[in-house]
Design a protein around this nucleic acid. Structure first.
Lengths: 346, 346
DNA sequence: TTTTAACACGAAAACGTTTTCGTAGCGTTC
DNA sequence: GAACGCTACGAAAACGTTTTCGTGTTAAAA
């Protein structure tokens, strides 16, 4: 087992100074061709590679970015990571991940762990708990120490930083307008309670579409679910809620749901109750997930372009890191969503 | 913008030496209570946290582990990451990710990038291309430099290191035996060509089950697909292949597929051709994916316990990192798979 | 022959820690 | 009053780099 070779060892072996070795390897004009060749040959032979940690310490720059997300087993977030990794790698950065698991405490701990020199900047999507508590001190502290943050998807207007978001409002509006065009008269909304920003914006989009087409808002057609319940493991409960909605509102002929699980479950329940999708009832979800494509019938959705969000976020962060002139200007990039029509709409 | 405070700054401010500050913060007996209190109060006030990079350099230990996987937008791999992150965090480690994107070159580059001091050890699942080329020099080099590797799922016997695998052979055998118990007489196998180890093992499990029950092996019931084609974006091609299989073998009444996409597609094609699942045809897949649970009918699968694999892999790696006595003993942990029966089997 | 300039290299500082070792100052002991 | 032993602290090295600056040697210029 041969440990990695260092400049010091090369210097000793060749009987020159460390400085000479360092310069020779970087092809400095200060060093004679003879010495350069000797050193470079030796370095190659022993497969010398500079130690990243030492470089980081010297340069006060780690070339690593940290990404903090609530959950990784999730199509949206894993696609974002892929985008971040793609751009980061292209530009010579590594990516270190932290999972908040939707917990405020874990988010804070993760950030503190990474903020002490391990990384140059953060890419973050806030945990649900953070959004509920509205406690953002950890972001302010990080930023005030000169470490840039880029937020994506679940962002918050109270913090001044670069942001990348999808046009939740427009996306939802377009989806609902599509349903209206398709002759739906009674469009239900399945959404979350208000504290998560994306749920709120999508709900607003729904309302706006109704208003634009002079349709009455019927409160009984809006089902607000508690996002703290993990319906993924508790599917029955979700089905019951939706079944209830259908049974008390027999005229529903269209559904807009703010995520994949709600939309898919709604479709399944509807079919079980004897509705034909899309003839009796049309359904649109909001997601980048993989279930929509493979369900029967396949589900029309508003696509969020998750990977693109990751790419943009990484680009913004690295731009900021590499522009010395730290102008205090922050931008919010909006990624256009896209309505993907599949079999669940006409 | 106040940069992070260092020992040197505290020392200067309080007019003591750096050593004194360091010792005071670590509650050394060498330092008087007076001084300790003074230093600790000051450090708290300015929120002093030791710089991780400096610590890493000094201790020659980064407390970071690298995970290299072929793809992150994939339920199996993202669940593994979750497991790795869980254990790593519990034991005080960070996780840095590298995506090989199924490319040999990217796998090598990623490893070289991280091996130069950034991490203490690797957790890896090999790219398809690496498996095909059978070029493992980068693993040997890494290991010979004293950096431990743990391989999971896609492993290779040529490399001496800790490994975590699922019992592909047993899992497949059990699945096929389940079909046999359920009175299937003509069980088709949908698998990949041989170079990916997991596909080969699952195929062997299929064969073994047939043999155990004295069923004839019919070569025409085995469909070997080229795993290099991305059927996810080229679903039609996949459907055609499977349709062909069904049409030339009208007696098929059971299907075992080595991954989720194949199983799901087979089920969809079968239904389109008029088969009733599970009455006319029963289907079992091999996956931890999310599609199986939500498909109609829901798909019976062999679960791989991906998160557990990640946890075990991280545990093995950290154990090795923290046992100074580097005994050259490697273990291979086998995670038991589990047959999850859903609607696609009787 | 002396001065100057170019060349080739080395010493040392710096990044931020921890830790070993040395020592100044003081009180105790005989 | 000398020898000794504590107590409380500081200097310095080390981790592996890069870079600035200083300097000895040689060849060219005066």
């Amino acid at each position: 087992m041969k440990r990695k070779v260092t400049l010091k060892q090369i210097a000793k072996e060749l009987d020159v100074s460390i400085s000479t070795v360092s310069k020779a390897l970087r092809n400095s004009v200060e060093i004679s061709d003879d010495t350069k060749q000797k050193v470079q040959a030796f370095a190659k032979l022993y497969n010398y590679k500079p130690n990243n940690i030492a470089l980081s310490l010297k340069n006060r720059k780690t070339n690593t970015i940290g990404i903090i997300i609530p959950e990784i087993v999730h199509h949206f977030f894993s696609k974002v990571i892929r985008g971040v990794e793609l751009v980061a790698n292209q530009r010579g950065y590594n990516v270190i991940i932290g999972l908040s698991n939707e917990s405020f405490a874990k988010e804070v701990i993760n950030m503190e762990m990474l903020a002490n020199g391990s990384i140059d900047g953060f890419i973050i999507s806030l945990s649900k708990e953070t959004l509920q508590l509205q406690d953002y001190h950890h972001f302010n502290e990080t930023i005030s120490q000169g470490m840039p943050i880029v937020m994506f998807d679940r962002v918050v207007s109270e913090i001044q930083c670069d942001k990348v978001i999808v046009d939740d409002f427009e996306g939802a509006k377009n989806a609902v307008e599509k349903l209206i065009e398709n002759k739906c008269k009674n469009i239900a909304l399945i959404t979350t309670k208000d504290y998560v920003s994306v749920g709120r914006l999508r709900t607003q989009g729904y309302l706006e579409a109704l208003k634009n087409h002079s349709l009455d808002l019927k409160a009984e057609l809006i089902l607000k679910l508690d996002d703290n319940i993990n319906y993924e493991v508790n599917l029955d409960a979700l089905e019951k809620e939706i079944e209830q909605l259908f049974k008390t509102n027999k005229t529903i002929d269209g559904i807009f749901a703010v995520n994949e699980l709600y939309a898919l479950t709604a479709m399944r329940v509807a079919r079980r109750l004897g509705f034909n999708v899309p003839n009796d009832m049309q359904v649109i979800g909001f997601t980048d997930g993989v279930l929509s494509k493979h369900s029967t019938p396949s589900l029309s959705t508003v696509s969020q372009h998750a990977q693109l969000m990751g790419e943009k976020a990484a680009g913004l962060l690295i731009d900021k890191l590499e522009n010395d002139e730290d102008e205090e200007s922050y931008q919010t990039q909006i990624i256009a969503s896209e309505l993907i029509e599949r079999e669940s709409t006409k």
